[in-house]
Amino acid sequence: MSYIHVDHLQKTFIIRKKRETGRLLREKETVFALRDLSFVIEKGELVGYIGPNGAGKSTTVKILSGILTPDSGNVSVDGRIPWESRREHVRNIGVVFGQRMQLWWDVPILDSYGLLKEIYRIPDADYRQRLKELTEALQLENLLRTPLRQLSLGQRMRAELCGSLLHRPGLLFLDEPTIGLDAVSKLALRDFLRWENREHGTTILLTTHDMEDIAALCSRVMVLGHGQKLYDGDLPALLEKYDTSRTVTVRFEDPETMPALPEEASLSREGDLVKVVYAPGQIPTPEILEKLQQAGTIREMTIQPQNIDVLIAAMYREMDL
């Protein structure tokens, strides 16, 4: 049996509209947060979970973590139904929200960890060993005695991660963990997540809008829209479907060179650079390269795929999200 099983999951919310003038009762509207969602995740997988705002991502995470009960459908995580045995279930999960802190603001983070140890009833020896391991991996050794409020955003995120992993959860939910972080912090965080996943076999479900996080970490990605699963598979295959254009930038020995290309490709000149935009589906890349070489001696050339965010936007558009 798989680690996480989600079967025909359904969840609706009732939204009470604002009272219209002259009406006594407020109108109610039923909104589907999730409709007929099914998927399976194996132990040790690192899955990216994407979709536009309001697609139902956080509803899924809330149900999987046992704090929300669904209307219908079956879910089992490690053989347990999350919302029926909340306390046993949450002992085995860790959750990190990029925009909400669980550590205490005014005390040294070590004190916060001490309290978490108490809350999760972690045995002393286990706690010491795990804390040592995590603080090394997250480079927190020198920050343990600093109050959370004095840490930078990147340091705070690392401290949060450490706090959510102290009790060795088998399953980790990450909600926009890299939001607002600088490049160095982002890379460090991704390295750590890869390490934790490899070293401890922790299953990770990553919800994010940052496609680079997904590209760097996840072997598998699920796309959610309007409460339904729209795609489930690997990221390159997903991108290929929507990767409709490439940009080639060329600098010729002779700046006056103007290559002759098929009509479908668009050609433009910026200073001594020639820019070619084409769709690989229409014109194969080798054909473009051949034409360019025929035009003159090339000094420099780069090929760029489309920006990943643009791709995702195109995909959302096509799926009518």
Partner: peptide, 19 residues
Amino acid sequence: KTVRLYLRSMKMLMKCQLE
């Protein structure tokens, strides 16, 4: 264990206040 958790929390929160 609940009492211990409570006492520990109190200790920490007192620290916060005295910041």
